[in-house]
Design a protein around this nucleic acid. Structure first.
Lengths: 222, 222
DNA sequence: TATATTTATCACATTTTTGTTATAATATGA
DNA sequence: TCATATTATAACAAAAATGTGATAAATATA
């Protein structure tokens, strides 16, 4: 996980960095808001630790800009409670905050908590032994990697992100193949076939809905 | 479009909010039924996501009250299927539901689906223990899946979307079979027969109207 | 460019659904 | 009540939809 630390005090950045590296996080740094946006654009940052008071562009502004690019969790650092209070009025998406002086351990603990909280947001789908990890772009059954073709993967992903919804062939074509695809409906059937084969036991969770299309519906068996 | 999220768990509200904001919806929140009504009165809400189990005033009550003020589509969140079953007796206007734990993406997809439908073209029909969920394209009786053929399903859907209306065979042929169907009238009878069979106890709610056709009319017993 | 992989389409097999027919059951009205 | 009209039912053949395997076209990769 890539964390971006934004603070004008080098000492603070350094201390945090040390602690976070111990936790296996990958660290990026920035001295002010403008720099933060630069770094944020270039790297696929997962988490931002942001100071409010900074030269050039302050934390408020920076967070607003960052959120436009990608919605990441933000932990705010502020010198005093009053500073933070001002922020509340802005209703920027801040996930948590600590006031200076803080203990690095507290920061680490809070980052972990926030990360857990957003786990629902993660692109990880688990159906018993079937695991679809979209970040890693891999599918596993009983911890064994399943090799899917790109189309099969896309199709599966669309199915699991639209669980329990009857998907028409048209919908599937539009959303998996794209609106510019003018091929045959039956193409889907073939891909569903191969996908089911690859999914083995889990293939049956792709239900056929006659005259309509298909539906992914997982029901735990006992 | 303004969506009101009513749930006592902040995490759930937050997660849903994040996803729905990405879809450009304007979000309002409430922790319980009472608060929901407050917020609902003050703002011109277009859609409500409602949890059943809440302190102070539960979802049942809240929906009833809200519907008095303005008839908006409601998506229900419920912890378990049993909770939802209880609701069936109430015949409140619920348009769709998901059971926890749900995927935020499914909720978004369902909201989109419901929004597309107009008043007449609802997605969820409930008659006591009979449930017709058009998003999932399934029919349940006492929470048991009923297997219908495509024609039976279409026929049933046409019946329930035209409740209490005597439908001539011609109407049924035109609207369920299509205007280009030039077959026999008796075809309907056969499909009504099998549909009634599949609906078991609920089959009787498809009334025969001699010399005319059929009518779906549900009346709560006792 | 050659090779391997992936994708789309076709043709045929299999399964499911549908419409029709014939016959039974039921309702209606004289 | 009975004759008649109308609907319900069951069986079955025809039609339609989906599953499948083979193959050709397209695309990516070395």
């Amino acid at each position: 996980m890539k964390i971006l630390i934004v603070d004008d005090e080098e000492l603070i950045r350094q201390v945090l960095k040390e602690y976070l590296i111990l936790e296996k996080y990958q660290i990026y740094e920035a001295e002010n808001g403008l720099e933060a946006i630069e770094v944020f654009k270039k790297n696929d940052i997962d988490f931002v630790i942001m100071d409010i008071m900074m030269p050039k562009m302050d934390g408020y502004q920076a967070i607003k800009e960052l959120k436009k690019i990608k919605n990441v969790p933000v932990l705010l650092l502020s010198a005093r409670n009053e500073e933070f209070d001002k922020l509340l009025g802005f209703e920027i998406g801040v996930d948590d905050y600590v006031t200076k002086p803080f203990s690095p351990k507290e920061v680490v603990a809070r980052i972990k908590a926030i990360s857990k909280r957003n786990e629902i947001n993660k692109s990880l789908y688990v159906f018993d032994d079937l695991l679809i990890d979209d970040v890693a772009h891999e599918v596993k059954i009983k911890n064994e990697l399943i090799m899917l073709t790109p189309k099969e993967y896309d199709l599966l992903k669309y199915f699991v992100t639209n669980q329990n919804i009857a998907l028409t062939r048209e919908q599937l074509l539009n959303n998996v193949w794209g609106y510019d695809f003018y091929g045959d409906d039956r193409t889907i059937d073939t891909h569903v076939k191969t996908l089911r084969q690859h999914l083995g036991l889990y293939g049956k969770y792709i239900k056929t809905i006659r005259k309509v299309g298909y539906k992914f519906e997982f029901k735990k068996e006992n």
